[in-house]
Structures are given as C-alpha cells and as structure tokens.
Design a protein around this nucleic acid. Structure first.
Length: 854
RNA sequence: GGGCGCAUAGCUCAGUUGGUAGAGCACUGCCCUUACAAGGCAUCGGUCGGGGGUUCGAGUCCCUCUGCGCCCACCA
C-alpha cells in the first residue's frame, strides 16, 4: 500500500505501473492451468511497415478489456502478441527507406552499407543489392520498428504476456509455416499450377484474389475495325485496351445476339494493324448491351478473358511480360507489315504501347471516331500503384473452396462453430466464401518471406520436374531451398542436369499469419501447451480483414485440425475521422497514439476506444478523450475522499437503508456488467459502470458525506463508511478493464496486490437493500439544488425550512433519508407533506450580515 | 445487380422480451462548496428519416420508400 497523494494526478502513472506489472509478471500466463481455466486469445500481429495508429488503439483496447475481464474472472489468459514483419509491405518500406532494391542476380556484399537511412532524395535511383543484403536490411528496419511498436503497446496498457512474443519471419514462425504447408501438400491441399494469374508489374509478383482492390481510373473506349475474311465488310468492337490488340485470339458475342449469330463459325476476321485471323465465337458472358455487343478476347486483358480463353479452348498469345512491358516475340503475327508494327511496340509499357498503337490505328484508318473517355473500375493490388496484369506463371495454391462447391459449403459451415460479435459479421464471412472464384494463391516472387520449402529434381535434359517436388523432413524445418540441399543431393548439383533447383518463391504473409493460433500455441512443438489453448476462445480483429486473415485462418484450421480455430470472433469497427470518412494517411488525418497518450492520459484514450461498440465504425473524438480524462481524474479524487473520510472498524456492517439501497443499485450494475462482458460487450459494461459512478459521486456521496464524518454518531458513520468502501472497491474493479492505470493507482492506496488480479465483483458481496428507496430521496435532493440555483444561492446556503411534498408511498423512503437530505441541503427543519408528485419548497436563511471591517 | 449495416437533441451515442423519450459534449445560467475550479449544480433542447400496418399502447415488431456507409459482383 502506498500513501494517498495530496493532489492525485494522472501524470506519469503509465510508466510507473507498466514497469511494476512487468516486474511482477502481473499478466503472465500460467501454463499449468487446465483448459477450462484458460481463456486464449488469437491476436492480430500488426504489420511492421509503418506506425501504429488510432485504429490499432481502438480495436486493441477492445480486446484488452475482454482479456482483463476474463483474468479478473480467474481465468489464465493466454494473450500473445507478434509482429507481422515478413512480406511485401516491409520490402516496400525497406526500398523507400534505404533507397535500394533487391536483385537476386547481384552478388552478396558483406561490407555493404545502404546509401541512406531514411528519406532518400526524390531523384535517387534505387541501388540494386543482393538478396542476402536486402534481407539484412529488412531485418534491421523491422527490428527498429518493432521496438517502437512494443513501447507504444506497453504504454497503451495492453496486458499481453510479452514472453510469448513472436515475429512472422523468425525461425519458429518459418518452421510452423513450412510445416503446415508440407502437411497441406502431403494431403493434396496444396498444389502448383501453371496458369494465368493476377500480376503486379511493379512488385513483379503474383497476388491473390483477397488482396485485390478496385480503383476508379480514367480510360477510353476505342472503336476498332476488324475485317471480315468473307468480304462482308468490317466488324466494330469497343475496347479500353487497344494495346492488347496483338494478343487478340477471337471475337465473342452472346449466343442469342441476332446481330452476330449469322457470323458464328461462318466467317473469320483479321485484326487491325497486325492482320491476324481470329474466329468469331459465342459465349454467354458476352454482354449485348456493352459497347457494340461484340468484344475482342485477348490473352489477357481481364479475368473474363481468362474464362473465355479456358472455356473456348483458345491459344495463348501473351504479349505483356512480367515487367509490364510488351514481350519481344509474337510469332503468330505472320503479316510482314504487322511484324514491323509490332516491333515498334516491343519493350514499351502498356501505357506507352497504347499511345503508340492508337497513332497506328489513326494512320491506318482502323480507329473509328475519337476515343471516348470514361471512368471505369480497374483491378489493382491493394498496395500497388499500377493496374494488375494477367500473366501466365507457375504458382502454388491452397484449396480454399474457390473451385469446389462441397469444400466451400464445409467452410461456410465452419462459420457456424463460431459465435460472432456482433452476429451480423458472419454474413460477411459467408458472403466472401460463397463468392470465391479461385483457390488461394500463396506463392510470391519476392524475397523477405517464408520460402516455399521444396526443391525440384532436374532431369537429364535439364528440365525441372515440377510435378514431383522434393520435400524436406519435418525435423529439418525451417529450411531455405536456395541454400539448403534436398536429401540425396549436395549443393554442387544445384542447377545441374540430374541435380536439383530450389523453389525460388516465398509464401505470402497471410500464409504465415493464417497460422497465428498454431504459432502462438507452439503447435507440434509443445503439444501440452497447444492442447490447453487450442481451439482458442477468441479471435479479435477489425472487420476489414475477414476475407483475408479470418478466412485464411479458418482454412488452415479446417485442413489441419478439422475444427474452427476459435469459439468466438470479435470484430471491431473502423475509426472514422470527424467528417465520418475512413481515416487514412493520404488524407493526412492520422493521429499518432503517443501524442494522445501524453495529452489526455492513456486511460482517457482507452475510454474513448472502449465506448465504441463491437463492430461499429466510430468517430475519432478528442472530446470523448477529454471526458475520459475527467472520469479518470474523478476516480482519483473520489477514491481519495472515500479513503480519507474515515476507516470503519473491521466489524462494521451496513445498516442504514440509504446505504443498503445504494449497494442494491450497485449489485444490479455488477450483474449487468458481468452479463455484458460475458457477451463480449465491453462498451455496455463501461456505460453502466460510468452511469452508476457519476450518480454515486454526485448524489450518494453528497448525501452521506456528513453522516460519514460522524455527525450522527459512530454507528451511523460506520454504516456509511463501510458502504462507501464497499462501493469504492467495486467501482475500481469494474473500471479496471478500461482504465488500467488509474484503477491500479487508486487500488494501491488501500489494497495489496494488483487490481488486475483481483476478483471480478459478484452480486453476493452486497447486503440486501431496496434499490428504489433512493429514487425519492435523490429527487428531493435534486429539487433542493434546483431551488437554490433558481434563488441564485450557493448550494451551501442554509435553509431554514424545507417542505417536501410527495406521494404517501414515498414517505417511508424520505423519512429514511431525512437526516441525510437535511445535511446535504444544509436544512434546519424538514417537513414532509402529502402530494401527488414530489416538489420542494425552501425558505433560505436570511443572509448573514457581516459588519464591515473598519 | 447481390449481401450487410446505419438513420433518436446542434454534435457523439444509449434505449436488451413493445409500457410516460435518456446520457455526455456544446450552449446558457448559478456557485471560488475543505475529495475534485483542467471543478460543482442546474436550465434549455427531440412530431425517434418518410409513409403504411399489427396492438389498448410502437423509437422498439411487420411492410414499404428515401438517404448514407461497407462488402461482393460487373469491369469489352
């Protein structure tokens, strides 16, 4: 116990208590607890590629309040945290921070020093460096960022067990990630396929459906003339991508479109400029309403092209390379002039090629009319700056139901094993799963990630055998196939005929973070621990990553464990700026949490966060933080008052009906808060506690203050003092999940141990009482205050006579409160008379005449 | 086009089996009251988005319309 300060303050309590909690192991997980005593939480490892922002504070606080509640309920809370540091986001940040780019063809330089550490000049050309050098920089930068993240989350008061910290690039995570992948592979759930995939030309990697985002961009319809080979004239098509003309493999119209029906199979056309002969085909996806009703199919302009290409068995004539530039070779163009024209496009970006081919089309007269500008949605990688192209390449996939109806149904059904908070979030999950149209593409042609842990044998002719990958044993993991050799081979056989090559790809970061329950629970490494925490009690996250993190975690658990990975999923909303737009960096409205903690205190910021109900997008509000600060300050002050007004004897009991009435109200609040928290509704618990607290301070404390000081004898004082302390201890515990620092501070003034390990209050702690008794008493008190305000008198002004007119039914209550009302109102004489409703009339004492000092 | 959510005081939001509209902030007024002036007390303020229905009674249940937001689909 510590002494009560003269002037309690919130300043500095974050540092004081987080240090103490760390020293005491207040939030350590006791792994000897049985499964039913454990509450395990699957937390989102934040992406280490920037900074933590108000959105993190918001949703992380929600989770922390639930963790703290469960801990006070006596559960051993398994509450791990990790950093998601592998992946593209980190690579991009490293490129921008150091002014470098990874080129696997560059030799390792042991003495390499980056040209910049932060803010390279705008005209700086990124320096190509070797993969090991690049990865070293990734590790250096993420390490720095992770230290900052940890400091912020500690200051936010997150009650993690920091000994459980992991990073998604560390040996442990690489091992778990590779192990899970190999299990998927062995069971046929992971496979490779050489097929058209969405491709980011800047990052030069394939991306998954879940990472795709539409952006509205400017484009233009170009009307092109194709020439019928039967001499029937031209067929006009509209396209937004004339630069893909050389990749055209067919025209397509709807089977029922009478305009084009006679042409199906009856004639072919030649393409403008290149003179390539292509068929006219029918397919139900062609929309008669769009453009001229007939489209050119290119390999590949969009995902519909891929469908047509596949279903109509068309040839592949890809012209866009992995760098987004037109490839050198287009052998299907047999026309000499066509070849010459194509030659002028080689090496151009799609944007440059479009400009050039439009000029060609204008010159040849095959562009009909002016291009018609439009705004249209185009698919982008969510972190990318240029539209995705579709490029054929060999990639790794994990089956996720995108190509199998039955599996999709099973995964939808897994959603029913989870209780969703709020419930409607399950619709988003179901909606996403049912809308899948391909398997989960997990391979990335990048560097800072978990390597795909396989090799391929090279046959005598030098061709890799992709269909029969060589795999490591589980005991070998983690491995890097670019430096480790498969069993039966040595590294000098790498790349040689009869030797092997390693898979060059890494797995996408979601392929690792989809395993957070297995990573944190030490799956296949510590079976005893894993059995105590898995399936986890709760998954906590924001709702925008249901389609990625939540779904992918479900997929991995489905395959590996045949069960949903958690019992509850808690989805937080987003932070909106005060104009109700989603907060984003580009708008420049992101506020750094550290500044808020310093300005308002952490507890005040948490108060704001916890007032946002589960799943509801919430406005960023510094006003709410001010309210939170006021609340925390009030708790310090009222705690000081209650503890200093007097200490009741140990045997003191609460006997006064005013006091038991207050405690009966409190018992109802405890019941409410407990029910709310059991349903993951922290915001409701806070609201109930807060409402009671202000009533307690404004009305109850004011009523009993005088009696507590002993103006009516020690027995009456003891009842008030005992009730005050019982209520104070309860309030401190009810607020503890929300205001961890100031509750710990005030708890330390009179209790031993941490409030965060104290037992959550139960209804049985309070003596029976009549909760409604105080209704009439408080109403009378309020009316006295009003009367004084109306009389422009001080609330402390003396009243000679107070007449309370009130219904007879309330008279017993008013009698019980007679002396407390009189004291609180400085009333000399109190008369209670019968009336229909409660009204008060006061006669103020004459003002004391003070003789002027001469 | 499909799915989901939201609409209550100037602002941010409660309102949990249908039973006389609530809180905080802001505004205004009063009070320098020995726990609290980075405070306390009080006042003002709403035909609960529109329309219809069920009911003795609807912010709450049903139908419908409008507006806003999110997810998905579409992307020639």
């Amino acid at each position: 116990m510590s002494t009560i300060p003269d002037k309690p303050s919130l300043d500095g309590i974050e540092a004081k208590w987080s240090q103490q909690w760390n020293a005491d192991g207040t939030y350590s997980f006791d792994r000897t607890a049985s499964r039913d005593q454990v509450f395990s939480i699957d937390t989102p490892p934040p992406t280490v590629s920037g900074s933590l922002h108000a959105g993190h504070v918001f949703s992380y606080t929600h989770t922390d309040t639930i963790a703290r509640y469960q801990r006070m309920q006596g559960k051993q809370v398994f509450y791990p945290i990790g950093w998601d540091d592998n992946g593209l986001a980190t690579e991009r940040r490293v490129q921008n921070f150091y002014g470098v780019r990874c080129d696997p063809n560059v030799a390792y330089d042991a003495a390499f020093e980056p040209p910049f550490r932060g803010d390279p000049p705008k005209n700086h050309q990124a320096i190509p460096i070797s993969r090991p050098n690049f990865i070293a920089l990734c590790e250096e930068l993420t390490h720095t960022d992770e230290e900052i993240f940890e400091a912020i989350l500690r200051k936010l008061g997150m009650s993690y067990d920091w000994s459980l910290l992991y990073t998604t690039i560390d040996d442990h995570c690489r091992r778990v990630s590779q192990l899970a992948f190999l299990r998927n592979l062995a069971r046929g759930e992971a496979y490779t396929q050489d097929a058209p995939t969405l491709w980011d030309v800047d990052y030069k990697t394939a991306v998954a459906q879940a990472e795709m985002a539409d952006k509205e961009v400017a484009g233009a319809y170009h009307k092109l003339a194709f020439h019928r080979t039967d001499g029937g004239g031209d067929i006009l098509i509209d396209t937004t991508r004339p630069e893909l003309l050389a990749a055209c493999v067919a025209l397509v119209a709807h089977p029922s479109d009478s305009r084009y029906q006679p042409l199906f199979g009856a004639t072919t056309v030649t393409t403008p400029i290149f003179g390539v002969e292509v068929p006219i085909l029918a397919h139900h996806l062609a929309d008669p309403e769009k453009g001229t009703g007939i489209a050119m199919i290119c390999t590949f302009g969009d995902t519909t092209d891929v469908t047509w290409w596949r279903e109509l068995n068309l040839p592949a004539r890809a012209i866009v390379g992995r760098d987004g530039r037109l490839v050198a070779d287009a052998p299907w163009i047999t026309d000499t002039d066509g070849q010459t024209k194509y030659g002028e496009l080689i090496g151009r970006s799609t944007k440059q090629a479009q400009k050039q081919i439009v000029e060609m089309l204008v010159a040849s007269g095959e562009l009909i009319g002016e291009p018609k500008p439009i705004m249209h949605p185009v698919k982008f990688y969510e972190r990318g700056d240029r539209p995705l192209e579709i490029v054929a390449s060999r990639q790794w996939y994990i089956r996720n139901g995108g190509r199998e109806e039955a599996l999709r149904a099973e995964l939808v059904e897994r959603g029913n094993e989870v209780t969703w908070h709020p419930a409607h979030m399950q619709h988003r999950y179901t909606n996403w799963v049912e809308g899948l149209n391909g398997d989960w593409l997990i391979s990335r042609q990048r560097y800072f990630g978990v390597p795909v842990p396989v090799w391929y044998a090279i046959d005598a002719d030098g061709n890799p055998d992709y269909d029969n990958p060589l795999v490591p044993s589980e005991a070998q993991l983690p491995i890097d196939p670019s430096t480790d050799a498969p069993a039966g081979f040595t590294n000098d056989q790498r790349g040689a005929a009869g030797g092997f090559i390693g898979d060059a790809d890494v797995m996408d970061t979601w392929a690792t973070s989809s395993l957070t329950p297995q990573i944190a629970g030490l799956w296949e490494q510590d079976p005893d621990l894993f059995a105590r925490v898995f399936p986890m009690d709760m998954r906590a996250q924001a709702h925008d990553i249901i389609r990625t993190w939540l779904f992918s975690t479900m997929v991995r658990s489905h395959w590996e464990h045949g069960v949903a990975p958690w019992k509850h999923a808690h989805l937080s909303g987003w932070i909106l700026d005060p104009d109700r737009k989603k907060m984003s960096k580009s708008v420049g409205n992101v506020v750094t949490p550290a500044a808020l903690f310093d300005q308002y205190s952490t507890d005040a910021v948490r108060y704001w966060a916890a007032s946002g109900r589960p799943g509801v997008d919430t406005a960023f509000s510094e006003d709410q933080m001010k309210v939170g600060r006021k609340l925390a300050t009030k708790l310090l002050n009222v705690s000081k008052f209650v503890l200093m007004v007097g200490e009741p004897p140990a045997a003191a009991t609460v006997t006064n009906p005013i006091d038991t009435s207050m405690l009966a109200r409190l018992a109802a609040v405890v019941a409410d808060c407990t029910e709310a928290f059991d349903g993951f509704d922290y915001a409701r618990s806070l609201e109930r506690t807060e409402a009671f607290f202000w009533w307690f301070c404004d009305d109850y404390v004011e009523l009993v203050k005088s009696r507590a000081y002993g103006t009516h004898g020690s027995a009456q004082a003891d009842s008030a003092l005992a009730a005050l302390r019982l209520a104070l201890g309860t309030i401190q515990r009810l607020f503890a999940p929300f205001l961890p620092f100031c509750t710990e501070e005030v708890w330390s003034w009179w209790q031993t141990g941490s409030v965060h390990r104290a037992a959550w209050p139960v209804v049985g702690e309070y003596p029976a009482g009549d909760a409604e008794l105080l209704d009439a008493v408080c109403e009378a008190l309020a009316q006295v205050r009003r009367a004084k305000t109306e009389a422009k008198a001080s609330q402390r002004a003396s009243v000679d006579l107070l007449i309370v007119r009130a219904p007879a039914a309330t008279h017993p209550a008013l009698e019980a409160g007679r002396s407390d009302i009189s004291d609180a109102g400085s009333v000399a004489e109190l008369q209670i008379v019968d009336a229909e409703s409660i009204t008060c009339e006061i006669t103020l004492s004459p003002p004391t005449v003070v003789a002027p000092v001469s």
